[in-house]
Simulated scan of single mutants.
Amino acid sequence: MVGDKSRKSSRPSYGDDAISYVQLKREGDICTVKCKVCPAHKVHAKLYSVTLIMDEQEEAVKSIECHDCVASQGGCKHAIAFLMWIHRRSEEPSCTSVECYWIKSKLSRVGSTLYNS
């Protein structure tokens, strides 16, 4: 059942554990992202190669393809898992927008500031 396959493949618990070796290449507005996906039932088998191409200007996925799966023509679970993994990463804040914790704490300045009355 296609809906059931999509639901299971889009789970964070599957995608986050199965996705590895991610590569990103940008050429103008086109972004190509490649990864390797570990098979769910044969974890020591050959990894599946998946390629996603998106237009960053239009914020649209142009194509996604699993190169090693016999079910790739019908939208295999590896491609779905990678697409959902990419989506979850896009929802995370940028590493530059997260507050730094290695800056000097406010408590370390106690007693060193002179107050004018």
Rank of each mutant, 00 (worst) to 15 (best):
83 L>V: 04
77 K>T: 11
105 S>M: 01
79 A>L: 00
22 V>L: 12
99 E>V: 09
98 V>Q: 05
49 S>W: 01
71 A>M: 11
102 W>H: 12
86 I>L: 14
95 C>I: 07
80 I>Y: 03
11 R>D: 14
78 H>N: 01
69 C>V: 06
44 H>R: 12
54 M>I: 03
50 V>M: 07
80 I>W: 00
79 A>H: 02
13 S>E: 13
36 K>N: 14
106 K>L: 12
108 S>Y: 02
74 G>P: 00
47 L>F: 08
47 L>H: 14
110 V>N: 09
115 Y>P: 02
51 T>C: 10
21 Y>G: 14
79 A>M: 01
68 D>G: 10
33 V>H: 07
31 C>A: 09
109 R>C: 08
71 A>V: 03
38 C>P: 03
92 E>Y: 02
16 D>W: 09
98 V>L: 04
59 E>C: 13
110 V>K: 13
10 S>Q: 13
59 E>V: 08
44 H>W: 09
42 K>S: 14
51 T>F: 01
104 K>E: 10
56 E>K: 09
76 C>S: 06
32 T>Y: 01
52 L>I: 07
112 S>G: 04
97 S>C: 03
18 A>Y: 00
36 K>V: 04
111 G>M: 04
77 K>W: 04
43 V>S: 14
39 P>F: 03
60 A>R: 12
111 G>W: 02
108 S>R: 04
63 S>P: 04
100 C>P: 04
38 C>V: 15
21 Y>N: 15
72 S>M: 07
114 L>F: 14
54 M>P: 03
78 H>M: 02
43 V>L: 10
51 T>N: 06
38 C>I: 15
67 H>L: 13
17 D>I: 03
108 S>G: 01
52 L>C: 08
35 C>W: 07
98 V>K: 10
62 K>E: 13
95 C>V: 08
22 V>R: 06
88 R>L: 08
97 S>G: 03
47 L>E: 12
64 I>D: 06
76 C>H: 01
89 R>V: 11
17 D>N: 11
61 V>L: 05
101 Y>W: 06
102 W>E: 07
49 S>N: 15
68 D>N: 14
31 C>S: 11
71 A>K: 06
64 I>R: 02
60 A>Q: 12
47 L>G: 05
31 C>F: 10
30 I>E: 10
12 P>I: 00
48 Y>A: 02
70 V>E: 12
57 Q>R: 15
29 D>L: 06
89 R>C: 14
67 H>V: 07
18 A>E: 00
56 E>R: 13
28 G>K: 11
71 A>H: 12
50 V>A: 03
97 S>N: 04
83 L>R: 09
60 A>L: 08
18 A>V: 00
50 V>H: 09
76 C>T: 06
34 K>Y: 11
115 Y>T: 09
109 R>V: 08
89 R>T: 08
107 L>G: 05
16 D>E: 15
28 G>H: 11
32 T>S: 15
111 G>C: 00
52 L>T: 06
105 S>L: 04
14 Y>G: 09
102 W>A: 05
72 S>A: 13
108 S>E: 11
45 A>F: 06
45 A>M: 07
46 K>Q: 15
111 G>E: 01
73 Q>H: 09
34 K>S: 15
102 W>N: 11
100 C>A: 10
109 R>W: 08
56 E>C: 15
104 K>I: 05
29 D>M: 07
92 E>K: 11
57 Q>N: 13
12 P>W: 00
75 G>L: 01
36 K>C: 10
58 E>H: 13
113 T>S: 04
33 V>K: 09
